[in-house]
């Protein structure tokens, strides 16, 4: 997807505490920086880390002012889990894209019986025309490390953001991923890119 400056490209990333959303938003922000863009990456830590919903926002472009993405202005929503995808889908702009890890983490409120599960989750997600479902957990397992599902999603995301060239993503991965895990993460990135 191409965004013409000065309007920044706005990516919202949502998941469950512990799923590795922070690495994904770091890689996206660094790649945008290496591509020569202004960039802002915002995330809220704290109580939200204890298994709750987590949200990061990344914006890049010629010049970025607000680190917070206005409601209804998200170009791409990256969701690490299907409930979270639907919880935040209203933040998308009309025609925005939805990149979703095709997996489900049952909230404690449901597993304990306090709340009913979301109804018709798959069907409601499919109603979004910009939906891309990626089996990131399965692809990560095939690549050889289930913990690289977040980088599989980065690979898939890179396919949707063609203003950021491949070498910028590669530089981001080399800068951010520890050397001993670099090869498996580069494979995860390529596999994610091939999945779209």
């Amino acid at each position: 997807m191409t965004t013409t400056p000065p309007s920044p490209c706005s990516i919202t990333l949502v998941g469950v505490g512990g799923q590795g959303t922070i690495l994904t938003s770091d890689l996206l922000a660094l790649a945008a920086m290496h591509a020569g863009f202004d960039v802002k990456k915002s995330e809220i830590h704290g109580m939200s880390q204890r298994g709750g919903s987590v949200v990061s926002q990344v914006r890049y472009g010629e010049r970025v002012r607000s680190p917070i993405i206005p409601e209804g202005a998200t170009d791409v929503l990256v969701a690490f889990e299907r409930n979270e995808a639907l919880r935040f889908a209203h933040l998308l702009k009309p025609g925005g894209l939805l990149l979703v890890n095709d997996t489900e983490r049952i909230p404690v409120t449901v597993s304990s019986g306090a709340q009913p599960p979301a109804e018709r989750l798959s069907e409601r997600l499919a109603a979004y025309p910009g939906l891309h479902l990626v089996p990131a957990d399965r692809i990560a397992a095939e690549v050889g490390n289930v913990r690289t599902a977040n980088v599989v999603l980065v690979g898939a995301l890179s396919k949707l953001l063609d203003a950021i060239p491949d070498d910028a993503w590669q530089s981001a991965l080399r800068q951010r991923v520890p050397a001993k895990f670099l090869d498996v993460n580069l494979s995860a990135f390529s596999a994610g890119r091939a999945a779209l």
């Binding site: 939200s48 880390q49 709750g52 209804g72 209203h90 909230p107 599960p117």
Partner: peptide, 30 residues
């Protein structure tokens, strides 16, 4: 944007409604 609508009359963009019935995911003791 709501402030701008008040001061300059520019209509604020309509906000989409969140999807209903998504179970909350509050922080919990590990």
């Amino acid at each position: 944007a709501a402030l701008r609508a008040e001061l300059l009359g520019t209509p604020a963009p309509a906000a989409a409604e969140p999807e209903a019935g998504i179970p909350p995911r509050p922080p919990v003791l590990c």
